[in-house]
Design a protein around this nucleic acid. Structure first.
Length: 589
RNA sequence: GGAGCCUUAGCUCAAUUGGUUAGAGCGCCGCCCUGUCACGGCGGAGGUUGCGGGUUCGAGCCCCGUAGGCUCCGCCA
């Protein structure tokens, strides 16, 4: 037996007992005579004290210990000397006085120290098995387990079945770039790794499973971000005979169970709802962060007859004039103003107008174009006060909203408006547009995916080909400005699905080769159904208070999709390629 | 594909306007130290300043190129 207790277990009530502990040497404090070791395991730290007068042989042996050596000690639990208790440690009232020490394994010189943060993430990822010993990362993985465990328990309690779907799957024309896997048995053909179990879970509804879930791996071969990895995990859910409201209730209950289990907090239910239109109009984002104000204010009525041509021109051509009031930001630096202007231009604005309210004056090159009436209307609509900074966007609705939305977030970041906030702001964003025109591809694309059901009242618009006006029966769940999940009620009628494919420019032939199975399935009695998928990595990231999903994954990949510890992706033996009938181009050998 | 920032000792960072032999803390090695908890003290080893080129009497610092990393845009139904 290696141990009787873990390193976060012993308390005053254990004093006098003989115990065995195993773990890693976290810190060594060698006083020449007495030696202190902080012994670490997954659960915590326990101080071990070697004293020459207690056991000269063991104390002598302890001098050779180095950080990260793996040891086992057997000894008596003793109270710490009065005045030397450590309130920062759960085990700080006691220490262990060993009568034997076994060195289970030595650690060589370490590539970096665990007690300081690194800036070189490559090094951490290369030695990931070592880096994960950091209490913070270890805790993150433990929280992740709590989250998946709570998810399973909750969904099981609601009658959902966990069903696995294939990883070796089929490439689909819509959506992200697929990861491909060549088939050896059928040369020249390829599997694709699933971007989501979307079609399989719908087919499970046709199969009559009624309530399905899966902690599912998904794969997308796109460029990476702090919150995006090529392989990631979804809490994937689908149910038959449900409306959007049923999915909301289920998801709210599940998130409540998760936050109760992982953070010990109650979250208020039901979550507020905003339509896509409201969210974008008010916050400039379809995943609004409502933990601070600075809302977008529409100024169309104020400037309808304005002499300021930039604003009038935008309105006359069917656009909007909107503004946000950044409270107490009049002392914006030139560098910050340049940065905000650059953001505005990145997202399509021609420029960024702003007014500083300083020394009782409105300072801006554009103020001279405003009438007194317009100024008074601005003052009351935006509640302008001394020290404020008002920023304007005059453009098409989409651009004006997005520009101000992005600037709003950046200013909140500069002003640290959410720093240290414990608030959990959940909401539903509903009524997304069904399709979006892609100028690049010269076709309509599905905003969510091609299986999403149009809102019942918008169905006639499909035949009228008024695609831009159609709303989807789709919804996102948002937490603190991060989209943590999304879903929809699906199409279950073969005719409607075929019409939808037509609208998306998928030819009749392609519908048969790529989606024939789905259309056939819908003809054999498909129940109405819908579901949702939550990004587990992002959710755990938020629960852990981390900035990157890499910090809540055991073995993440870097920005280029490399896993530095095992050095994947890697070349393969030519024999393997021959078996697959694959020849590399001359520039990739 | 594009933009920004970054790259100096094993790690985290510094190095004034371009100026002597590139420094500090931690880690490592040696010695000392019996109540610490980021223990402490003394000594030591450790550097192609990512790489290549240029400007200059002189480059870690300026210029050009290149590689790599991170963040963002595009992309991600």
């Amino acid at each position: 037996m290696y141990r009787t207790h873990n390193c976060n277990q012993l308390r005053k009530t254990d004093i006098g007992y003989e115990v065995k502990l195993s773990g890693w040497v976290a810190v060594r404090r060698d006083h020449g005579g007495v030696i202190f070791i902080d012994l670490r395991d997954r659960e915590g730290l326990t101080q071990v004290v070697f004293r020459p007068e207690e056991n000269a042989e063991v104390a002598k042996q302890s001098h050779s210990l180095r950080p990260e050596d793996v040891i086992q000690v057997t000894g008596k639990v003793a109270p710490r000397l009065p005045g030397t208790e450590n309130p920062k440690l759960a085990t700080g009232e006691i220490e262990v006085i060993p009568n034997s020490l076994t060195i289970l394994n030595r650690a060589e010189n370490l590539p970096f120290q665990l007690d300081t943060e690194l800036s070189n993430e490559d090094l951490e990822l290369t030695y990931r098995y070592y880096d994960l010993r950091r209490p913070r990362l270890s805790r993150n993985l433990q929280i992740r387990h709590r989250v998946t465990q709570a998810t399973r328990e909750y969904l099981d309690s609601q009658g959902f079945l966990e069903i696995e779907t294939p990883i070796l799957s089929k490439s689909t024309p819509e959506g992200a770039r697929d990861f491909l896997v060549p088939s050896r048995l059928i040369p020249g053909k390829f599997y694709a790794l699933p971007q989501a179990p979307q079609q399989y879970k719908q087919l499970l509804m046709v199969a009559g499973m009624e309530k399905y879930f899966q902690i599912a791996k998904a794969f997308r071969d796109e460029d990476l971000r702090a919150d995006r990895q090529p392989e990631f995990t979804q809490i994937d859910i689908e149910a038959s005979f449900v409306t959007a409201d049923d999915i909301y209730t289920l998801t709210e209950g599940m998130l409540a169970a998760i936050f109760k289990a992982a953070r010990g907090v109650e979250i208020p239910k039901p979550f507020p709802r905003l339509t896509y239109r409201e969210a974008v109009s008010t916050f400039g984002s379809d995943k609004p962060d409502r933990r601070f104000g600075m809302q977008l204010v529409d100024l169309g009525d104020v400037f309808a007859a304005s002499e300021f041509k930039v604003f009038r021109g935008a309105l006359d051509s069917g656009g909007v004039v909107k503004a946000i009031n950044a409270k107490n930001f009049a002392e914006i630096t030139i560098g910050q103003a340049d940065e905000l202007t650059a953001i505005a231009k990145t997202f399509g604005a021609k420029g960024l107008a702003f007014i500083k309210i300083e020394d009782g004056e409105w300072k801006s090159p554009i103020v001279k174009f405003f009438s007194e009436t317009e100024k008074e209307a601005l003052r009351s609509k935006l509640q302008i006060e001394q020290g404020d900074l008002v920023l304007f966007a005059a453009d098409k609705w989409e651009i004006a909203c997005e520009v101000l939305g992005r600037i709003r977030l950046r200013i909140a970041e500069i002003q640290k408006l959410t720093a240290g906030s414990e608030r959990l702001d959940f909401l539903w964003v509903t009524d997304f547009p069904l399709m979006q025109w892609s100028a690049e591809e010269n076709k309509w694309n599905a905003v969510h995916h091609p299986f999403t059901r149009p809102k019942m009242e918008d169905l006639p618009l499909l035949d009228e080909k008024k695609f831009s006006e159609m709303r989807a029966d789709a919804y996102d769940v948002v937490l603190n400005g991060v989209e943590i999940g999304g879903g929809s009620i699906r199409i279950h009628e073969p005719e409607l699905q075929a019409k939808m494919f037509d609208a998306l420019g998928i030819s009749a032939e392609e519908q048969q080769t790529k989606f024939g199975h789905l259309l056939r399935a819908f003809r054999l009695g498909a129940p109405p159904h819908g579901g949702i998928a939550l990004g587990l990595d992002r959710l755990v990231m938020l629960i852990c208070g981390e900035q990157s999903i890499r910090d809540v994954m055991a073995f993440p990949k870097n920005n280029r999709g490399q896993e530095l510890m095992t050095q994947s992706p890697a070349p393969v033996d030519p024999k393997q390629l021959r078996e697959l009938g694959i020849k590399l181009g001359s520039d990739n050998s």
